[in-house]
């Protein structure tokens, strides 16, 4: 057995499991977080996608020892800003059908948008190609990712203009010193 300590959705978790247990089963069976799904167990379908220090990984093939001291994010702890834009877009176009692949799809999409705020179709194709959807929601996934990119851009515009307003206000208060 191995004692593994890692940050899970912002909280430190310590578990005692066999060292070769894939993170997926530690999340689902040991820690009771079932939003991350099992689909194939061999890194083929993407249903088990989580973020390891912000990058998408397949938790079904990631031994739990590899996450010791690292940061894991699952669908339950989706990053607030980009994650909520993705969820909003997913909701807008009603992406899920059976829904089983969608945690993985959303984790992959969020990881993509974190490093590429405005991906092209080709970039979406390569970032999302490891996530199988047996219900065939691919067309709306593409649409939703573009929509999420728009929301993220809107948010940035809004926060930039807030920041600009704040800056201008400060400058005014400082007596217009430029």
């Amino acid at each position: 057995m191995a004692i593994i300590s890692f940050t899970l959705n912002g909280n430190v978790e310590t578990i005692d499991v066999v060292p070769d247990m894939p993170l997926l089963w530690a999340l689902r069976d040991t820690l009771g977080l079932t939003g991350t799904k099992f689909g194939c167990g061999i890194a083929q379908c993407g249903a088990c996608t989580v973020h390891l220090d912000g990058a998408p990984v397949r938790s079904c093939v990631l031994p739990v020892t590899a996450v010791n001291g690292r940061n894991i994010t699952t669908i339950e702890g989706l990053p607030a800003d980009i994650g909520s834009s993705v969820q909003r877009a997913w909701q807008d176009v009603d992406v899920p059908q059976c829904g089983y692949c969608q945690s993985g799809q959303i984790m992959s999409a969020t990881a993509l948008l974190s490093v590429n705020a405005n991906p092209t179709d080709t970039e979406i194709n390569s970032a999302m190609n490891g996530n199988i959807c047996r219900c065939g929601t691919y067309q709306v996934i593409r649409e939703a990712i573009h929509r999420a990119a728009d929301y993220i851009a809107d948010n940035e515009l809004a926060s930039n203009s807030l920041a600009t307003n704040a800056l201008e206000k400060n400058e005014d208060e400082a007596g217009g010193a430029v």
Partner: peptide, 27 residues
């Protein structure tokens, strides 16, 4: 009409058979 099940299927909350956990359950 919007699907009624979208909200729980985008946040990991939808409960599928595979997600069932009961006290004392074995695998």
């Amino acid at each position: 009409v919007k699907r009624r099940d979208t909200a729980v299927k985008i946040n990991g909350q939808a409960q599928y058979g595979i997600d069932i956990s009961l006290p004392g359950m074995v695998y």
